Computed example of a mutant assay.
Amino acid sequence: MPAGSNAKRERQYEHIKEGAEKRGASEKRAKEIASRTVNKARARSGEAKSSSRTSTQDPKSASQRGGERSHSGSQGPTKDQLYNEAKKKNIEGRSSMNKQQLRKALGH
């Protein structure tokens, strides 16, 4: 952790690091993930002395983004997400549709 970090950020760092290690990341990678995450949170809250534009101007936090940018070549919404959208729009026959059919019915 950077010098001058507060107790909350220290706890946050340890929590993220331990979670990454439980998911199978090496200790080095877990430390990197935790550092980057905590540093971004510090930048957003104005605790960091300097930060990148994306750290401070991204409209969504990592938790709000929900992994939207965690992998490239995204295939769009999942079948469950499409189904739920179809349910909201009361599209008949949705329960027997596959993902492609749901996309077509929803106009995706």
Rank of each mutant, 00 (worst) to 15 (best):
K17A: 07
E18W: 01
G19V: 00
G19T: 01
A20N: 03
A20I: 00
E21R: 06
E21G: 02
R23H: 07
G24V: 00
A25R: 10
A25Y: 02
K28V: 15
R29P: 02
A30D: 03
K31C: 13
K31G: 09
K31L: 05
K31R: 12
E32H: 04
E32S: 07
I33D: 04
I33W: 02
A34N: 06
S35Q: 07
R36E: 11
R36D: 09
R36F: 07
R36Q: 04
R36Y: 05
T37V: 12
T37F: 13
V38T: 00
N39D: 08
N39A: 03
N39F: 03
K40D: 07
K40S: 10
K40P: 11
A41L: 13
A41G: 06
A41M: 14
R42S: 09
A43Y: 04
S45C: 13
G46E: 09
G46I: 09
E47G: 00
E47T: 02
E47N: 01
A48V: 07
A48N: 08
K49A: 12
K49R: 03
S50M: 08
S51C: 11
S51I: 06
S51P: 15
S52R: 08
R53M: 10
T54W: 10
T54K: 09
D58G: 04
D58W: 12
